[in-house]
């Protein structure tokens, strides 16, 4: 069997760059996904019909269609005309990747926020409101801090999924880790070495990440 470990070494700069991009894509997705998710999650339980309708439709749309299709639509269909409108040549795989992962994880995080908030006993909101706090104050000081603790494990799962799903960005040739493996294979006709290296890269990141999540879980469980 042609493992091709020597090619992995030859192409090491691609792997290192891909590793870095995978971390970057995931971090950006986590960051903006959390912000988008917070607003959509609050929107879903808002008393405003419009906000509720929009959030529900958004979540359904992004959870009900494959991420790979979303990436294709965003990169080839939606962003290019938008970029032209503002006088730029076109989007790049980097930018499309950021947008697609953020929008997609926003939908999943919204569900986690919604479930987290709804899991808090109704009496907490009532006690806060009976003291004269506004709904927004009650959310901020009473509901969200308690919900957030319960959200740490599902958020951790979501972000591990996002890390792995960032490999789908290969369809728009974003230069993340899987892409490095694919390019190496194409050039050298060796498969196992490059793709095992890719797999090991993801495994390392998911293991580190889930350690981090359990640490946070322990830290906030008090």
């Amino acid at each position: 069997m042609n493992w091709g470990w020597q090619y992995v070494w030859d192409y090491r700069l691609w792997f290192i760059r891909g590793f870095g991009y995978t971390i970057l894509f995931t971090s950006v997705g986590v960051f903006f996904g959390t912000i988008i998710g917070l607003f959509l999650g609050l929107g879903q339980i808002s008393q405003n019909k419009l906000a509720r309708g929009f959030s529900k439709a958004y979540v359904d749309l992004f959870r009900g269609t494959p991420l790979m299709v979303q990436i294709l639509i965003i990169h080839f269909g939606l962003l290019p005309p938008l970029f032209h409108l503002f006088g730029y040549q076109s989007t790049t795989p980097l930018i499309s990747g950021f947008v697609a992962l953020s929008l997609n994880s926003g939908a999943y995080v919204a569900e986690i926020f919604r479930a987290g908030i709804l899991s808090i006993d109704k009496g907490q909101m009532e006690a806060a409101r009976s003291l004269g706090l506004t709904r927004a104050q009650a959310m901020r000081f009473i509901i969200l801090p308690q919900a957030f603790k319960r959200m740490i494990p599902p958020l951790g799962n979501e972000f591990i999924a996002l890390l792995k799903d960032s490999s789908l960005l290969i369809v728009i040739a974003a230069q993340e880790l899987t892409y490095a493996g694919q390019m190496t294979s194409k050039n050298t006709f060796a498969y196992l070495g490059p793709y095992f290296t890719v797999a090991a890269g993801y495994l390392m990141l998911t293991l580190i990440f889930s350690r981090g999540v359990s640490y946070l879980e322990r830290k906030f469980s008090k």
């Binding site: 907490q124 009532e126 006690a127 806060a128 409101r129 003291l131 308690q146």
Partner: peptide, 18 residues
């Protein structure tokens, strides 16, 4: 909210903020 500052309420299940 202004009215509620003048009206305290105590609940069966306490509803303290844990």
């Amino acid at each position: 909210n202004q009215v509620r500052t003048h009206v305290g309420m105590v609940f069966q299940h306490f509803n303290l903020f844990p």
